[in-house]
Design a protein around this nucleic acid. Structure first.
Length: 92
DNA sequence: CCTCTGATTGTTGGA
DNA sequence: TCCAACAATCAGAGG
């Protein structure tokens, strides 16, 4: 099963203080591309843009993803911090 | 020890 | 407010 087949929707959180996980490079990529794709495809519904984003993302090379992965990495650290506090709260 | 699934992140746009 | 496809990412649990 691929990660893209389940994910019904944002399910509930099982943890009390569940620290929000780090964002994916795609999230950052979408942040920038959403504006570009939408600019090139005005009026297109999310269905079109959404798929376009995925295709564009796959088209990007590791070098292009660098800036996005970099953000993702930075956010990852952010998550670590949240987790640290989260664990502290639970493991207090 | 190693593997896997589940849950989560954010975007748009309409109902 | 919620959901849909898209991709990534991580943490916990199990064998």
């Amino acid at each position: 099963m691929s990660t893209t087949e389940k994910r019904k929707t944002t399910r509930k959180k099982k943890d009390p203080d569940a620290p929000k996980r780090s964002l994916s490079a795609y999230m950052f990529f979408a942040n920038e591309t959403r504006d570009i794709v939408r600019a090139e495809n005005p009026g297109v519904s999310f269905g079109q843009v959404g798929k376009l984003l995925g295709e564009r993302w796959k088209k990007l090379t590791a070098d292009e993803k660098v800036p996005y992965e970099t953000k993702a990495d930075a956010d990852k650290k952010r998550y670590e911090k949240e987790k640290a506090e989260y664990v502290k709260r639970n493991g207090n």
